[in-house]
């Protein structure tokens, strides 16, 4: 037992070093040239730097890196908890339709823009987008919660979630059909996901929201561990399943809603990272998996962000595509490795 916890500590130190290294490296990546020296100066003696360099570091790099770190962590934790609650290795923040709900909110604002009479582009009205996606995510969450109050079986909730996703996606495509091409393009660009559109002030706003929610969810690790062995077993161990479900769903919706609002629907990460954490730490214990998913989610999204900037010199590739390409091989490999288990 002792050696096990020592081993985990070492692993945590290693992934934390990788995490810090990627944060520093990601700060130097981008269209303008910023060296590691500039970053060090920015931290210790910002007066040596020109104001334009400071602006670039703060508004573009720092904002982007903070977003990657927080969004990666939030989505990874959401995915982990969904997989536990649904006892399904394929669950992620996507399956409940929460990301799609946020997407619908954004679609109503962006695609329906001409209908409502304001045709502001997606870049200049971040706060409207934020509000719309938050409301969209919350609306789907309410629906799911209402269902989960009535339905005992978690699989039925999963099916309802998938159906809601489908319906919402269909509504969006109908809206796309009737919208003009400028708005459609700006919506499609939003769905590709981006960490670059987030300003420093917005990225700072993400930190307390996500940190608070993840911290609260961490305190539910013990009942979550009991849930792994099935709902009725957890019930005999004194877990209040309905309450736990409501807390986890609300937490996941807040995390997914906030991240989706700022960065667009980032798929796949929430599915892949929990599996990577389980594999690295060789445990099913949420007291270990939640913090490790926080770090590995950030590492994963930082890698995706770096690649999306480095691979194509002329601009930034869509991050959603990059993280899927990055994550899929991991999942295939992990599935092939342990075929006999579920989560």
């Amino acid at each position: 037992m002792k050696t096990r916890s020592l081993e985990n500590t070492v692993k945590f130190i290693v992934i934390s070093i990788v995490w810090i290294g990627l944060v520093l490296f990601d700060l130097t990546v981008g269209t303008n040239h910023i060296s590691l020296g500039n970053i060090v100066d920015y931290i210790f003696s910002p007066e040596q730097l020109s104001s334009s360099t400071i602006f670039t570091i703060k508004e573009f790099r720092l904002a982007r890196v903070i977003t990657a770190v927080v969004a990666g962590a939030a989505l990874a934790v959401s995915g982990l908890l969904m997989q536990t609650i649904f006892r399904n290795p394929l669950a992620g923040p996507y399956v409940l339709g929460i990301s799609n709900g946020a997407g619908l909110g954004v679609a109503i604002v962006v695609l329906g823009g001409s209908l409502w009479g304001f045709s502001r582009s997606i870049e200049t009205s971040n706060w409207v987008i934020l509000l719309a996606s938050g409301v969209g995510a919350a609306a789907v969450l309410m629906l799911i919660l209402a269902v989960s109050m009535r339905v005992k079986d978690v699989l039925s909730i999963l099916i309802v979630g998938i159906l809601i996703s489908g319906v919402v996606a269909s509504i969006v495509s109908v809206m796309q059909f009737f919208s003009n091409d400028v708005n459609v393009k700006s919506y499609v660009v939003w769905t590709m996901g981006s960490l670059d559109a987030v300003s420093f002030a917005e990225s700072i706003l993400l930190i307390p929201i996500c940190l608070a929610v993840i911290l609260i969810l961490y305190f539910f690790s013990k009942p979550l561990n009991l849930m792994l062995l099935g709902e009725s077993f957890a019930l005999t161990m004194g877990v209040n399943i309905k309450m736990l479900r409501i807390i986890i769903f609300t937490g996941v919706s807040l995390l997914t809603g906030a991240v989706t609002a700022f960065c667009g629907p980032l798929g796949f990460l929430g599915l892949a990272v929990p599996h990577i954490s389980r594999w690295i730490f060789n445990t099913s214990n949420h007291f270990v998996l939640i913090p490790s998913s926080v770090i590995l989610g950030a590492v994963f999204l930082l890698c995706g962000d770096i690649l999306s900037h480095v691979l194509y010199a002329g601009g930034v590739l869509p991050i959603n595509a990059i993280i899927s390409i990055l994550g899929a091989p991991f999942i295939v490999w992990i599935v092939l490795k342990n075929q006999r288990t579920i989560i």
Binding site: L228, F233, T341, I343
Partner: peptide, 14 residues
């Protein structure tokens, strides 16, 4: 009371 169900699923890494 403790309850032992007739079958439990295998949980990875437990």
């Amino acid at each position: 009371v403790s309850f032992v169900p007739s079958k439990i699923d295998a949980v990875a890494n437990m």
